[in-house]
Each structure stands twice: as C-alpha cells, then as structure tokens.
Design a protein around this nucleic acid. Sequence first.
DNA 1: GCGACGTGTGTACGTTCGTGCACAATGTAG
DNA 2: CTACATTGTGCACGAACGTACACACGTCGC
Lengths: 105, 105
Amino acid sequence: MHNVRVCNAVRKGGAMRVRTPTELGALVRDRRRDQGLSQEALATRARVSRRWLAALEAGKPSAEVGLVLSTLEALNQEVSVDDRAGTTPTVDLDAVLAAVDEEDR
Amino acid sequence: MHNVRVCNAVRKGGAMRVRTPTELGALVRDRRRDQGLSQEALATRARVSRRWLAALEAGKPSAEVGLVLSTLEALNQEVSVDDRAGTTPTVDLDAVLAAVDEEDR
DNA sequence: GCGACGTGTGTACGTTCGTGCACAATGTAG
DNA sequence: CTACATTGTGCACGAACGTACACACGTCGC
C-alpha cells in the first residue's frame, strides 16, 4: 500500500518567473510539495536520482537542462519563454524605412 | 564601426512553449537571429563560449541550466513556469473531506 | 575570384557531472 | 520513546562537461 498524503489545498498556481537556478529550484520544491510528493516520488517520475533532485532544489546551476525539463513535465508544469516586458520594440522597420523612402522622393 | 544588420521585421514575440532541449535550442537561435546577433556576439553577452552556444542551439540536453538562463537573459527573454492547462485540479480537498464527514454523521 | 563573416564540428584539457550509497538530522505518528 | 519517512550532504566512480582552438564549408559583398 502506498503512503499517500492529502494536501490542505491544491491551488491554481499563477505563472512564476524564473531568472536564476535558485528560483527554479525553489519553484520545483514548492510545486512538488503542493502536489504532496516526496523527493523520491518525483525523482522516480522524472527518471532522475533523488540526489540530483535534491541538488536541483538547492539551486545547483549546473543541472542539465534536459533533466530539468523532464522534472517540470513530471510536475505537470509547462515552460514558456517570452520577450521581457517593455523591451521589445513593436515597430515594423520595413514600414518605417519605406515611409522614409517615400519622403525623400 | 559595428557591423549592424537591420532585420526585415521585429515582431512582438508571443510566448513560446518549450518542452525539449531541441525546442529550447531552436528558440534561442530564432531569437538571436531576430535580434541580428551572431553566435559570437550572443556568446560574449551571455558569457559563454561560442562552441557551447552552438551546441545549445543544436539541442544539447546536457547544457547547464544556469548558462541557459544567462543566455535567455542576454536575449531579453524571460522564462515562466505555469501549471499545464487543463491538468490542475481546482478543488479544495479540505472542503470536500469536511463535506464527506458531515454526510457520515 | 577573393576576403570577410557566420556556423558546424572535431580535439584536447582540466574539471565536474549524475548516480548510487551511506549517514546524520529533523519531524511526525503511534 | 520508538520507528519511520523525509531530506541534506559527503564520497567514489565512470562519463561527460565547458572552454579554447582549429578547420571546413557556405554565403555575401566588392
């Protein structure tokens, strides 16, 4: 028989920004605990060792990205990458250059 | 004088889902090219070697996650992690269990 | 045709990886 | 208080890392 624990609440997580390996590790730990999983249980699902998972949760920067993605998938988490807010120009340069060309005639 | 190239268009990138190292590599290459950068230029910004960056773009799963995050930051990209759509239960288990308890009385 | 540039990839090197195992510390249930 | 589960972390091992360098190839501008 499995040792199953019922969580107090299972929340709808908002998207979490991740900038550093430490933030990533904390996120993995939080999600794992939210889902009532031990390190051993998640490690098995993600096909990594518990030793490795412990190091990831502790913020190890040299963890393999493939194993990280596998671990997030085992937690039913999806990763998305987007332009950082406020940094991407929203101008069609071709259109601008074409307009300049028109002016010069 | 810098060798600067003007892109055909600079688009407001939508968020890209990333599930595998290959998808990640392709995203890095696309963003780099969108911004008119060479591998050498991005590698310098991200403080990695060009050799490593080429391997990342080719989908190397064992790339270090810390270097990956550094590279995405150099591309002004932010990473976010969220519950996979349609998989997160939105039920307060405590409430459910409490309700079951009430019924049994 | 030539030079410059960008990129894919092989090699060598010193260093560190992921894994398995073990042990200690902590918290919890009975 | 004891037993158990969980977690942090050190160590040994075979394997692979990131970096620097080099070379080949394709593309482009002159």
